[in-house]
Design a protein around this nucleic acid. Structure first.
Lengths: 227, 227
DNA sequence: TTTAAAATAGTAGTAATACTATTATAAATA
DNA sequence: TATTTATAATAGTATTACTACTATTTTAAA
Protein backbone atom coordinates (compact mmCIF):
# COMPACT_ATOMS: atom_id res chain seq x y z
CA UNK A 1 0.00 0.00 0.00
CA UNK A 2 1.32 3.42 -0.94
CA UNK A 3 0.17 6.55 0.82
CA UNK A 4 -0.17 9.90 -0.83
CA UNK A 5 1.98 12.27 1.21
CA UNK A 6 0.32 15.42 2.45
CA UNK A 7 2.41 18.04 4.16
CA UNK A 8 0.58 20.97 5.66
CA UNK A 9 2.24 24.11 4.32
CA UNK A 10 2.20 27.54 5.92
CA UNK A 11 -0.51 29.52 4.15
CA UNK A 12 1.63 32.62 3.93
CA UNK A 13 3.85 30.81 1.45
CA UNK A 14 1.29 31.05 -1.32
CA UNK A 15 -1.51 33.30 -2.57
CA UNK A 16 -3.66 30.33 -3.46
CA UNK A 17 -3.12 26.74 -2.43
CA UNK A 18 -1.40 25.06 -5.40
CA UNK A 19 -2.42 21.59 -4.24
CA UNK A 20 -6.10 22.23 -4.83
CA UNK A 21 -6.15 22.80 -8.59
CA UNK A 22 -4.71 21.22 -11.67
CA UNK A 23 -2.88 24.42 -12.58
CA UNK A 24 -1.46 24.66 -9.08
CA UNK A 25 -0.12 21.11 -9.23
CA UNK A 26 1.45 21.87 -12.59
CA UNK A 27 3.18 24.93 -11.17
CA UNK A 28 4.78 22.71 -8.52
CA UNK A 29 5.71 19.90 -10.87
CA UNK A 30 7.06 21.99 -13.73
CA UNK A 31 8.51 24.59 -11.37
CA UNK A 32 10.75 21.98 -9.77
CA UNK A 33 11.88 20.69 -13.14
CA UNK A 34 12.63 24.14 -14.53
CA UNK A 35 14.54 25.49 -11.52
CA UNK A 36 16.50 22.26 -11.45
CA UNK A 37 17.33 22.51 -15.16
CA UNK A 38 18.15 26.19 -15.56
CA UNK A 39 19.01 27.34 -12.04
CA UNK A 40 17.08 29.78 -9.91
CA UNK A 41 18.61 32.95 -11.38
CA UNK A 42 17.57 32.15 -14.95
CA UNK A 43 14.19 30.83 -13.94
CA UNK A 44 11.21 33.16 -14.55
CA UNK A 45 7.45 32.89 -14.17
CA UNK A 46 7.09 33.62 -17.86
CA UNK A 47 9.16 30.60 -18.81
CA UNK A 48 7.24 28.48 -16.32
CA UNK A 49 3.92 29.68 -17.73
CA UNK A 50 4.99 28.86 -21.28
CA UNK A 51 6.15 25.44 -20.13
CA UNK A 52 2.81 24.68 -18.51
CA UNK A 53 0.72 26.31 -21.22
CA UNK A 54 -0.81 29.07 -19.14
CA UNK A 55 -0.11 32.78 -18.76
CA UNK A 56 2.34 34.61 -16.57
CA UNK A 57 -0.53 36.17 -14.60
CA UNK A 58 -1.85 32.69 -13.99
CA UNK A 59 1.28 31.75 -12.08
CA UNK A 60 1.27 35.03 -10.17
CA UNK A 61 -2.18 34.15 -8.84
CA UNK A 62 -0.61 31.26 -6.93
CA UNK A 63 2.73 32.67 -5.80
CA UNK A 64 3.74 36.24 -5.05
CA UNK A 65 7.09 35.83 -6.80
CA UNK A 66 9.68 33.24 -7.65
CA UNK A 67 11.40 33.56 -4.27
CA UNK A 68 8.24 32.48 -2.53
CA UNK A 69 7.95 29.52 -4.88
CA UNK A 70 11.52 28.48 -4.04
CA UNK A 71 10.79 28.90 -0.36
CA UNK A 72 7.72 26.71 -0.83
CA UNK A 73 9.86 23.94 -2.34
CA UNK A 74 12.63 24.16 0.23
CA UNK A 75 10.13 24.30 3.08
CA UNK A 76 8.42 21.22 1.74
CA UNK A 77 11.79 19.43 1.80
CA UNK A 78 12.54 20.47 5.39
CA UNK A 79 9.10 19.41 6.56
CA UNK A 80 9.29 16.12 4.75
CA UNK A 81 12.76 15.45 6.11
CA UNK A 82 11.72 16.14 9.68
CA UNK A 83 8.74 13.85 9.27
CA UNK A 84 11.03 11.23 7.81
CA UNK A 85 13.45 11.58 10.73
CA UNK A 86 10.69 11.18 13.29
CA UNK A 87 9.24 8.21 11.47
CA UNK A 88 12.61 6.50 11.05
CA UNK A 89 13.96 6.83 14.59
CA UNK A 90 10.59 6.20 16.19
CA UNK A 91 11.27 2.60 17.05
CA UNK A 92 14.93 3.04 17.93
CA UNK A 93 16.23 3.19 21.48
CA UNK A 94 19.95 3.67 20.96
CA UNK A 95 20.83 7.38 20.62
CA UNK A 96 23.90 6.61 18.55
CA UNK A 97 21.87 4.58 16.10
CA UNK A 98 19.37 7.45 15.81
CA UNK A 99 22.10 9.92 14.94
CA UNK A 100 23.53 7.58 12.33
CA UNK A 101 20.14 7.25 10.73
CA UNK A 102 19.67 11.02 10.62
CA UNK A 103 23.03 11.54 8.92
CA UNK A 104 21.98 8.91 6.45
CA UNK A 105 18.72 10.69 5.68
CA UNK A 106 20.50 14.04 5.31
CA UNK A 107 22.86 12.78 2.66
CA UNK A 108 20.41 10.86 0.54
CA UNK A 109 17.75 11.91 -1.86
CA UNK A 110 14.27 11.68 -0.42
CA UNK A 111 13.04 8.14 -0.72
CA UNK A 112 9.48 7.01 -1.29
CA UNK A 113 9.24 4.86 1.82
CA UNK A 114 6.68 7.20 3.33
CA UNK A 115 4.55 7.48 0.22
CA UNK A 116 4.55 9.04 -3.20
CA UNK A 117 4.34 12.55 -4.53
CA UNK A 118 3.69 13.62 -8.10
CA UNK A 119 6.91 15.51 -8.66
CA UNK A 120 10.58 14.64 -9.17
CA UNK A 121 12.16 14.15 -5.73
CA UNK A 122 15.62 13.87 -7.22
CA UNK A 123 15.22 17.28 -8.84
CA UNK A 124 13.95 18.72 -5.56
CA UNK A 125 16.99 17.36 -3.71
CA UNK A 126 19.22 19.06 -6.24
CA UNK A 127 17.36 22.32 -5.79
CA UNK A 128 17.93 22.05 -2.05
CA UNK A 129 21.65 21.51 -2.60
CA UNK A 130 22.06 24.35 -5.10
CA UNK A 131 19.52 26.95 -4.05
CA UNK A 132 18.28 26.44 -0.51
CA UNK A 133 20.70 28.89 1.10
CA UNK A 134 19.30 31.68 -1.03
CA UNK A 135 15.96 31.55 0.74
CA UNK A 136 17.42 32.95 3.94
CA UNK A 137 20.53 34.71 2.65
CA UNK A 138 18.42 37.70 1.60
CA UNK A 139 17.50 41.11 2.90
CA UNK A 140 14.06 39.93 3.97
CA UNK A 141 15.18 37.11 6.29
CA UNK A 142 13.89 38.89 9.33
CA UNK A 143 10.53 39.63 7.77
CA UNK A 144 10.13 36.06 6.54
CA UNK A 145 11.28 34.75 9.89
CA UNK A 146 8.66 36.83 11.69
CA UNK A 147 6.06 35.24 9.41
CA UNK A 148 7.32 31.82 10.65
CA UNK A 149 8.35 30.79 7.16
CA UNK A 150 11.54 29.13 8.40
CA UNK A 151 9.83 27.19 11.16
CA UNK A 152 10.25 23.80 9.43
CA UNK A 153 14.00 24.36 9.11
CA UNK A 154 14.28 25.39 12.73
CA UNK A 155 12.16 22.43 13.84
CA UNK A 156 14.36 20.03 11.91
CA UNK A 157 17.45 21.58 13.43
CA UNK A 158 15.97 21.44 16.93
CA UNK A 159 15.02 17.81 16.46
CA UNK A 160 18.58 16.88 15.46
CA UNK A 161 20.00 18.98 18.27
CA UNK A 162 17.82 17.05 20.71
CA UNK A 163 19.35 13.80 19.51
CA UNK A 164 22.81 15.24 20.13
CA UNK A 165 21.81 16.34 23.63
CA UNK A 166 20.33 12.92 24.34
CA UNK A 167 23.62 11.31 23.33
CA UNK A 168 25.63 13.70 25.51
CA UNK A 169 23.62 15.99 27.81
CA UNK A 170 26.72 18.01 28.66
CA UNK A 171 27.52 19.03 25.11
CA UNK A 172 26.89 22.80 24.94
CA UNK A 173 26.67 23.42 21.19
CA UNK A 174 23.93 21.03 20.08
CA UNK A 175 22.10 23.55 17.90
CA UNK A 176 25.23 24.90 16.26
CA UNK A 177 26.38 21.38 15.52
CA UNK A 178 22.98 20.48 14.08
CA UNK A 179 22.85 23.43 11.68
CA UNK A 180 26.49 22.88 10.75
CA UNK A 181 25.87 19.23 9.93
CA UNK A 182 22.78 19.98 7.82
CA UNK A 183 24.61 22.62 5.80
CA UNK A 184 27.81 20.58 5.55
CA UNK A 185 25.93 17.57 4.18
CA UNK A 186 24.69 19.70 1.31
CA UNK A 187 27.88 21.64 0.74
CA UNK A 188 30.11 18.58 0.63
CA UNK A 189 27.85 17.12 -2.03
CA UNK A 190 28.01 20.34 -4.03
CA UNK A 191 31.78 20.67 -3.67
CA UNK A 192 32.34 17.08 -4.78
CA UNK A 193 30.39 17.91 -7.91
CA UNK A 194 31.84 21.31 -8.77
CA UNK A 195 34.83 22.26 -6.60
CA UNK A 196 36.52 18.99 -5.72
CA UNK A 197 39.59 20.60 -4.15
CA UNK A 198 37.34 21.72 -1.30
CA UNK A 199 36.47 18.22 -0.17
CA UNK A 200 37.68 14.67 0.33
CA UNK A 201 34.49 13.34 -1.18
CA UNK A 202 35.40 11.79 -4.49
CA UNK A 203 32.25 12.23 -6.56
CA UNK A 204 28.69 13.31 -6.14
CA UNK A 205 27.69 9.68 -5.78
CA UNK A 206 30.24 9.12 -3.04
CA UNK A 207 27.72 9.58 -0.24
CA UNK A 208 29.56 7.08 1.94
CA UNK A 209 32.51 9.46 2.38
CA UNK A 210 30.17 12.33 3.29
CA UNK A 211 28.53 10.11 5.90
CA UNK A 212 31.85 8.86 7.28
CA UNK A 213 33.18 12.40 7.52
CA UNK A 214 30.05 13.69 9.28
CA UNK A 215 29.78 10.68 11.60
CA UNK A 216 33.39 10.95 12.69
CA UNK A 217 33.00 14.69 13.26
CA UNK A 218 29.73 14.45 15.15
CA UNK A 219 30.66 11.57 17.44
CA UNK A 220 34.09 13.04 18.13
CA UNK A 221 32.55 16.39 19.03
CA UNK A 222 29.91 14.72 21.21
CA UNK A 223 32.36 12.41 22.92
CA UNK A 224 32.21 13.04 26.72
CA UNK A 225 36.00 13.04 26.91
CA UNK A 226 36.20 15.34 23.92
CA UNK A 227 38.84 17.89 24.74
CA UNK B 1 54.62 52.48 9.49
CA UNK B 2 51.50 51.42 7.63
CA UNK B 3 51.69 49.58 4.35
CA UNK B 4 49.22 49.94 1.55
CA UNK B 5 47.94 46.46 0.85
CA UNK B 6 48.09 45.26 -2.72
CA UNK B 7 46.53 41.98 -3.63
CA UNK B 8 47.09 40.72 -7.14
CA UNK B 9 43.69 39.92 -8.56
CA UNK B 10 42.93 37.52 -11.40
CA UNK B 11 42.56 39.65 -14.54
CA UNK B 12 39.52 37.70 -15.71
CA UNK B 13 37.57 39.18 -12.81
CA UNK B 14 37.37 42.59 -14.40
CA UNK B 15 37.21 44.24 -17.81
CA UNK B 16 39.51 47.02 -16.72
CA UNK B 17 41.62 47.13 -13.58
CA UNK B 18 39.63 49.19 -11.07
CA UNK B 19 42.69 49.93 -8.96
CA UNK B 20 44.30 52.02 -11.67
CA UNK B 21 41.78 54.85 -11.98
CA UNK B 22 39.81 57.11 -9.69
CA UNK B 23 36.53 55.85 -11.11
CA UNK B 24 37.61 52.25 -10.60
CA UNK B 25 38.48 52.89 -6.98
CA UNK B 26 35.12 54.54 -6.47
CA UNK B 27 33.36 51.51 -7.92
CA UNK B 28 35.09 49.33 -5.33
CA UNK B 29 34.51 51.66 -2.43
CA UNK B 30 30.90 52.57 -3.13
CA UNK B 31 30.10 49.09 -4.44
CA UNK B 32 31.01 47.56 -1.09
CA UNK B 33 28.92 50.12 0.78
CA UNK B 34 25.91 49.70 -1.47
CA UNK B 35 25.85 45.90 -1.55
CA UNK B 36 26.27 45.91 2.20
CA UNK B 37 23.42 48.38 2.70
CA UNK B 38 20.82 47.07 0.27
CA UNK B 39 21.80 43.44 -0.29
CA UNK B 40 23.05 41.91 -3.50
CA UNK B 41 19.61 41.25 -5.03
CA UNK B 42 18.51 44.89 -4.84
CA UNK B 43 21.90 46.23 -5.87
CA UNK B 44 22.22 47.42 -9.49
CA UNK B 45 24.91 49.11 -11.56
CA UNK B 46 22.53 51.98 -12.18
CA UNK B 47 22.18 52.71 -8.47
CA UNK B 48 25.94 52.39 -8.07
CA UNK B 49 26.54 54.79 -10.94
CA UNK B 50 24.16 57.35 -9.47
CA UNK B 51 25.86 56.99 -6.10
CA UNK B 52 29.29 57.64 -7.60
CA UNK B 53 28.12 60.30 -10.01
CA UNK B 54 28.92 58.48 -13.24
CA UNK B 55 26.85 56.59 -15.78
CA UNK B 56 25.73 52.98 -15.88
CA UNK B 57 27.90 52.35 -18.93
CA UNK B 58 30.83 53.72 -16.99
CA UNK B 59 30.54 50.92 -14.45
CA UNK B 60 30.07 48.32 -17.17
CA UNK B 61 33.42 49.29 -18.59
CA UNK B 62 35.07 47.93 -15.43
CA UNK B 63 32.96 44.88 -14.61
CA UNK B 64 31.01 42.60 -16.90
CA UNK B 65 28.08 42.43 -14.47
CA UNK B 66 27.26 42.66 -10.80
CA UNK B 67 28.07 38.98 -10.19
CA UNK B 68 31.62 39.57 -11.30
CA UNK B 69 31.87 42.58 -9.02
CA UNK B 70 30.69 40.45 -6.09
CA UNK B 71 33.16 37.74 -7.03
CA UNK B 72 35.89 40.40 -7.11
CA UNK B 73 35.03 41.44 -3.55
CA UNK B 74 34.75 37.91 -2.18
CA UNK B 75 37.95 36.86 -3.93
CA UNK B 76 39.76 39.82 -2.43
CA UNK B 77 38.59 38.66 1.00
CA UNK B 78 39.76 35.09 0.45
CA UNK B 79 43.14 36.23 -0.82
CA UNK B 80 43.61 38.68 2.01
CA UNK B 81 42.58 36.06 4.56
CA UNK B 82 45.03 33.51 3.22
CA UNK B 83 47.81 36.09 3.28
CA UNK B 84 46.81 36.99 6.81
CA UNK B 85 46.89 33.32 7.84
CA UNK B 86 50.35 32.80 6.40
CA UNK B 87 51.63 35.98 7.99
CA UNK B 88 50.17 35.18 11.39
CA UNK B 89 51.29 31.58 11.77
CA UNK B 90 54.65 32.20 10.16
CA UNK B 91 56.59 32.36 13.41
CA UNK B 92 54.60 29.67 15.22
CA UNK B 93 55.84 26.14 15.72
CA UNK B 94 52.99 24.54 17.61
CA UNK B 95 50.38 23.10 15.17
CA UNK B 96 47.61 23.48 17.74
CA UNK B 97 48.42 27.12 18.24
CA UNK B 98 48.36 27.66 14.47
CA UNK B 99 44.90 26.16 14.17
CA UNK B 100 43.60 28.30 17.03
CA UNK B 101 44.92 31.39 15.32
CA UNK B 102 43.25 30.48 12.04
CA UNK B 103 39.88 29.96 13.72
CA UNK B 104 40.36 33.34 15.30
CA UNK B 105 41.03 34.98 11.96
CA UNK B 106 38.03 33.28 10.39
CA UNK B 107 35.59 34.62 12.93
CA UNK B 108 36.80 38.19 13.08
CA UNK B 109 36.47 41.09 10.76
CA UNK B 110 39.62 41.78 8.80
CA UNK B 111 41.98 43.81 10.87
CA UNK B 112 44.42 46.40 9.68
CA UNK B 113 47.51 44.75 11.10
CA UNK B 114 48.82 44.06 7.63
CA UNK B 115 48.13 47.50 6.25
CA UNK B 116 45.31 49.75 5.20
CA UNK B 117 42.88 49.75 2.33
CA UNK B 118 40.61 52.56 1.24
CA UNK B 119 37.30 50.77 1.71
CA UNK B 120 35.18 49.62 4.62
CA UNK B 121 36.49 46.25 5.81
CA UNK B 122 33.58 45.78 8.18
CA UNK B 123 31.14 46.14 5.29
CA UNK B 124 33.19 43.68 3.23
CA UNK B 125 33.11 41.13 6.04
CA UNK B 126 29.34 41.46 6.15
CA UNK B 127 29.13 40.96 2.42
CA UNK B 128 31.16 37.78 2.78
CA UNK B 129 28.78 36.52 5.48
CA UNK B 130 25.61 37.37 3.59
CA UNK B 131 26.49 36.93 -0.06
CA UNK B 132 29.66 34.90 -0.56
CA UNK B 133 27.89 31.59 -1.15
CA UNK B 134 26.06 33.08 -4.11
CA UNK B 135 29.28 33.39 -6.10
CA UNK B 136 29.58 29.64 -6.50
CA UNK B 137 25.98 28.51 -6.00
CA UNK B 138 25.16 29.44 -9.58
CA UNK B 139 24.79 27.73 -12.91
CA UNK B 140 28.17 28.97 -14.10
CA UNK B 141 30.27 27.50 -11.29
CA UNK B 142 32.03 25.13 -13.62
CA UNK B 143 32.80 27.82 -16.15
CA UNK B 144 34.10 30.19 -13.48
CA UNK B 145 36.07 27.38 -11.91
CA UNK B 146 37.73 26.58 -15.23
CA UNK B 147 38.77 30.23 -15.41
CA UNK B 148 40.45 29.75 -11.99
CA UNK B 149 38.24 32.35 -10.38
CA UNK B 150 37.85 30.30 -7.20
CA UNK B 151 41.53 29.60 -6.79
CA UNK B 152 41.96 31.90 -3.76
CA UNK B 153 39.14 30.09 -1.94
CA UNK B 154 40.62 26.72 -2.77
CA UNK B 155 44.09 27.88 -1.74
CA UNK B 156 42.79 29.12 1.59
CA UNK B 157 41.00 25.84 2.15
CA UNK B 158 44.10 23.83 1.22
CA UNK B 159 46.23 25.91 3.55
CA UNK B 160 43.90 25.21 6.48
CA UNK B 161 43.63 21.55 5.52
CA UNK B 162 47.43 21.33 5.64
CA UNK B 163 47.40 22.60 9.20
CA UNK B 164 44.90 19.89 10.11
CA UNK B 165 47.07 17.25 8.46
CA UNK B 166 50.14 18.55 10.28
CA UNK B 167 48.29 18.23 13.58
CA UNK B 168 47.14 14.70 12.78
CA UNK B 169 48.65 13.11 9.65
CA UNK B 170 46.22 10.20 9.83
CA UNK B 171 43.05 12.29 9.68
CA UNK B 172 41.45 11.49 6.30
CA UNK B 173 39.03 14.40 5.85
CA UNK B 174 41.26 17.46 6.16
CA UNK B 175 39.81 19.26 3.16
CA UNK B 176 36.21 18.57 4.03
CA UNK B 177 36.80 19.75 7.57
CA UNK B 178 38.50 22.90 6.32
CA UNK B 179 35.65 23.90 3.99
CA UNK B 180 33.11 22.99 6.66
CA UNK B 181 34.84 25.18 9.23
CA UNK B 182 35.12 28.16 6.88
CA UNK B 183 31.44 27.97 5.97
CA UNK B 184 30.34 27.24 9.53
CA UNK B 185 32.19 30.28 10.88
CA UNK B 186 30.18 32.48 8.55
CA UNK B 187 26.86 30.68 8.96
CA UNK B 188 26.95 30.67 12.74
CA UNK B 189 27.49 34.42 12.66
CA UNK B 190 24.56 34.86 10.29
CA UNK B 191 22.27 32.57 12.29
CA UNK B 192 23.06 34.37 15.53
CA UNK B 193 21.98 37.58 13.85
CA UNK B 194 18.86 36.39 12.05
CA UNK B 195 17.82 32.84 12.97
CA UNK B 196 18.95 32.37 16.58
CA UNK B 197 17.16 29.04 17.05
CA UNK B 198 19.72 27.52 14.67
CA UNK B 199 22.71 28.23 16.89
CA UNK B 200 24.04 28.40 20.43
CA UNK B 201 25.79 31.64 19.64
CA UNK B 202 23.98 34.35 21.58
CA UNK B 203 24.47 37.42 19.43
CA UNK B 204 26.38 38.53 16.42
CA UNK B 205 29.06 39.96 18.70
CA UNK B 206 29.42 36.67 20.53
CA UNK B 207 32.44 35.54 18.53
CA UNK B 208 33.86 33.71 21.54
CA UNK B 209 31.10 31.09 21.37
CA UNK B 210 31.67 30.60 17.65
CA UNK B 211 35.36 30.08 18.30
CA UNK B 212 34.78 27.71 21.23
CA UNK B 213 32.30 25.68 19.19
CA UNK B 214 34.66 25.42 16.21
CA UNK B 215 37.74 24.71 18.35
CA UNK B 216 36.02 21.93 20.24
CA UNK B 217 34.71 20.44 17.00
CA UNK B 218 38.00 20.65 15.12
CA UNK B 219 40.25 19.31 17.88
CA UNK B 220 37.80 16.55 18.74
CA UNK B 221 37.61 15.49 15.09
CA UNK B 222 41.39 15.64 14.73
CA UNK B 223 42.06 13.80 17.96
CA UNK B 224 44.12 10.67 17.18
CA UNK B 225 41.91 8.58 19.46
CA UNK B 226 38.79 10.09 17.89
CA UNK B 227 36.32 7.27 17.43
C1' DT C 1 -34.86 29.23 -15.38
C1' DT C 2 -33.14 33.47 -15.44
C1' DT C 3 -29.97 36.75 -13.21
C1' DA C 4 -26.57 38.48 -10.39
C1' DA C 5 -22.45 38.00 -8.03
C1' DA C 6 -18.32 35.66 -7.28
C1' DA C 7 -14.40 33.32 -8.87
C1' DT C 8 -11.10 32.51 -12.39
C1' DA C 9 -8.53 33.25 -16.53
C1' DG C 10 -6.47 36.11 -20.24
C1' DT C 11 -4.75 40.65 -22.36
C1' DA C 12 -2.24 44.37 -22.24
C1' DG C 13 0.09 47.15 -20.23
C1' DT C 14 4.33 49.54 -16.97
C1' DA C 15 8.60 50.40 -14.45
C1' DA C 16 12.87 48.62 -13.66
C1' DT C 17 16.81 45.74 -14.88
C1' DA C 18 20.68 44.33 -17.48
C1' DC C 19 22.78 45.26 -20.96
C1' DT C 20 24.75 47.20 -25.94
C1' DA C 21 25.54 50.18 -29.88
C1' DT C 22 26.44 54.61 -31.22
C1' DT C 23 28.04 59.06 -30.79
C1' DA C 24 30.79 62.63 -28.56
C1' DT C 25 34.83 64.32 -26.23
C1' DA C 26 39.46 64.41 -24.50
C1' DA C 27 44.39 62.83 -24.61
C1' DA C 28 48.30 61.18 -26.96
C1' DT C 29 51.03 60.65 -30.83
C1' DA C 30 52.65 61.49 -35.82
C1' DT D 1 48.18 70.59 -36.68
C1' DA D 2 46.11 66.45 -37.95
C1' DT D 3 44.94 61.99 -36.55
C1' DT D 4 44.67 58.07 -34.14
C1' DT D 5 43.46 56.24 -29.73
C1' DA D 6 41.34 56.06 -25.48
C1' DT D 7 37.58 57.16 -22.68
C1' DA D 8 33.12 58.77 -21.48
C1' DA D 9 28.15 59.90 -22.16
C1' DT D 10 23.60 59.18 -24.75
C1' DA D 11 20.29 56.66 -26.19
C1' DG D 12 18.71 52.92 -27.15
C1' DT D 13 16.81 47.30 -26.65
C1' DA D 14 15.26 42.89 -24.76
C1' DT D 15 13.92 40.85 -20.72
C1' DT D 16 12.15 40.69 -16.11
C1' DA D 17 8.88 41.32 -12.60
C1' DC D 18 5.09 42.74 -11.95
C1' DT D 19 -0.14 45.05 -12.12
C1' DA D 20 -4.52 46.75 -13.83
C1' DC D 21 -8.12 45.80 -16.50
C1' DT D 22 -11.26 43.03 -19.23
C1' DA D 23 -13.45 38.76 -20.50
C1' DT D 24 -15.27 34.46 -19.35
C1' DT D 25 -16.96 30.79 -16.60
C1' DT D 26 -18.96 28.99 -12.48
C1' DT D 27 -21.93 29.24 -8.66
C1' DA D 28 -25.80 30.67 -6.14
C1' DA D 29 -29.95 33.27 -5.31
C1' DA D 30 -34.52 35.02 -7.07
Amino acid sequence: MKLQIQIKMNEDLYLRNPEQTELGKNIIKHGIQLIHKMGFESFTFKKLAEDIGTTEAGVYRYFENKHRLLLYFVTWYWSYLEYNVVFNINNMTNPEEKIRRVLDLLTHELDDSLGTVDFDKKALYNIVINESNKVYLSKDVDENNSAHLFKPYKDLCARIADLFSAYNPNYPYARSLASTVIEAAHFQYFFAQHLPRLTNVKSKDDTSTIIEFLEQMVFAALSPDGK
